[in-house]
Simulated assay, not measured.
Amino acid sequence: MEYTQLGRTGLKVSRLVLGTMNFGPHTDEAGSHAIMDAALGAGVNFFDTANVYGWGENKGRTEEIIGSWFAKGGDRRDKVVLGTKVYGDMSADGNPWPNHNKISALNIRRSVEASLRRLGTDHIDIYQFHHIDRDTPVEEIWQAVDTLIQQGKILYAGSSNFPGWKIAQANEAARRRGSYGLVSEQCLYNLIERRAEMEVIPAAREYGLGVIPWSPLHGGILGGILGKAAGGGRRSAGMGAERLKQPGMRQRIQAYEDLLDKHGLEPGEVALAWLLTRPGITGPIVGPRTGEQLASAVRAVSLELSGELLAALEEIFPGTGPSPEAFAW
Rank of each mutant, 00 (worst) to 15 (best):
E2F: 09
T4Q: 05
R8E: 06
T9I: 01
T9W: 13
L11G: 02
G19W: 00
T27R: 03
A30Q: 11
H33L: 07
M36Y: 07
D37T: 01
A38H: 07
F46S: 08
V52Y: 07
Y53N: 11
Y53A: 09
G54H: 09
T62K: 01
E63V: 04
F70W: 09
K72M: 12
G73I: 02
Y87A: 15
D89Q: 01
G94A: 12
P98N: 13
N101I: 00
I108G: 08
S111I: 08
S111F: 08
V112Y: 03
A114L: 08
R117T: 10
L119N: 14
L119M: 05
G120D: 03
T121N: 02
D122N: 14
I126R: 06
Q128M: 14
F129R: 09
T136F: 01
E139G: 10
Q143A: 15
D146E: 15
T147N: 15
Q150W: 08
Q151F: 03
Y156F: 14
S160V: 02
F162E: 03
P163K: 12
W165N: 00
Q169M: 12
A174I: 07
L188M: 10
M198L: 15
P202G: 09
R205P: 01
V211M: 13
I212H: 09
W214K: 02
H218T: 06
G219I: 00
R235F: 05
G238N: 12
G240K: 08
L244P: 02
K245C: 05
Q246V: 06
Y256V: 04
L265G: 09
E266N: 13
L272W: 04
A273E: 12
W274A: 06
W274F: 07
T277N: 12
G283N: 01
I285K: 01
A295P: 02
S296H: 02
V298N: 06
V298P: 01
V301H: 06
G319I: 00
P324I: 08
F327G: 15
